Simulated scan of single mutants.
Amino acid sequence: MARFPHYKRNTKALGELLAKASLDPALKRELVENPNKVLSELGLPEQATELLNFKVVEAETDRSTIALPFRLNGKKLAQSNPQYLSELGQLLQ
């Protein structure tokens, strides 16, 4: 399951994209080099592709990677709540 804002209809497309990228070196390179563009073209919400910088992380034996689930607060974003935006920015650094 995706750990970022997405439409339910994108879940299958996200899985297919990851499967294709694992088999297609050119697609994998494009996804690694510009994940926001690829995910935007897939139809992810602008809220996700404009506010988040995605990074493709491959599993390595000497590295532990954790994906943290979260939800953006649309009301606070629409209001440009400075405290919320600051905390969100710190979280994503």
Rank of each mutant, 00 (worst) to 15 (best):
M1L: 07
F4T: 02
Y7L: 07
K8Q: 11
K8W: 10
R9M: 13
R9W: 15
K12P: 12
A13S: 13
L14I: 05
E16T: 10
L17C: 00
A19R: 07
K20T: 01
S22V: 14
L23I: 08
L23N: 05
L23C: 06
D24C: 05
P25C: 07
A26L: 11
A26V: 15
A26H: 15
R29V: 04
E30C: 06
L31C: 04
V32N: 06
V32W: 11
E33L: 10
E33K: 13
V38P: 07
V38M: 09
V38K: 12
L39F: 11
S40Q: 11
E41I: 13
G43I: 05
L44R: 11
P45K: 10
P45S: 06
E46Y: 14
Q47W: 10
Q47A: 08
Q47S: 06
E50F: 15
E50P: 11
E50N: 15
L51E: 02
N53E: 08
F54V: 00
F54S: 01
F54W: 08
K55N: 07
V57K: 08
V57R: 09
E58H: 08
T61S: 14
D62S: 10
I66A: 14
A67L: 15
L68V: 15
L68G: 08
F70A: 04
R71S: 05
R71P: 02
L72V: 00
L72P: 01
N73R: 09
N73T: 03
G74C: 04
K75G: 04
K75P: 01
A78H: 13
Q79W: 10
N81S: 04
Y84P: 00
Y84C: 01
S86W: 08
S86V: 03
S86T: 01
E87H: 08
E87D: 07
L88K: 00
G89V: 03
L91C: 02
